[in-house]
């Protein structure tokens, strides 16, 4: 499977309500090393947005950094962006990805902690 096959996929909640499309794939470097390399990159979850807003210079992923005006605008623009852990997806082989719980139980992206890369 290619990473790009996940990007742009439609996502619905357990009731069939449209959540948006996959705009990014969150990776966590905590997998068992392979061939003496570093820890492997695990697909931890999907960033799902009702808008196709692009990457917005990354401010949408690091909500507590950047000028306050940019933070405020980006946060308002991304109000509906959610984070779906990979194991909440019922069947990733379907064209539309269905989450195993209702929309109200799916967290907003800005509520998800993350250790900044780099």
């Amino acid at each position: 499977m290619r990473l790009s096959e996940l990007l742009g996929r439609e996502v619905t909640d357990s009731d069939g309500t449209d959540i948006g499309t996959v705009t990014d794939v969150r990776l966590v470097q905590d997998g068992p090393p392979r061939d003496l390399g570093q820890a492997r990159l695990r697909v931890a979850g999907l960033v799902v947005s009702p808008r196709h807003g692009g990457r917005l210079l990354g401010y949408d992923r690091i909500p507590y950094e950047g000028p306050w005006l940019v933070r405020t605008l980006v946060r308002a623009y991304n109000q509906g962006t959610r984070y779906v852990p990979w194991d909440w997806i019922q069947d990733h082989s379907e064209p539309t990805l269905r989450v195993d719980r209702p929309l109200a139980d799916i967290p907003h992206l800005h509520d998800i902690p993350g250790r900044r890369a780099g």
Partner: peptide, 21 residues
């Protein structure tokens, strides 16, 4: 089932933002 509110143990990357292109 994973808890999305738990801080990840490893570095976090967003593939589109940090890898592609």
């Amino acid at each position: 089932m994973s808890d999305p509110h738990r801080t990840p143990a490893g570095r976090v990357y967003d593939a589109y933002l940090h890898l592609l292109d």
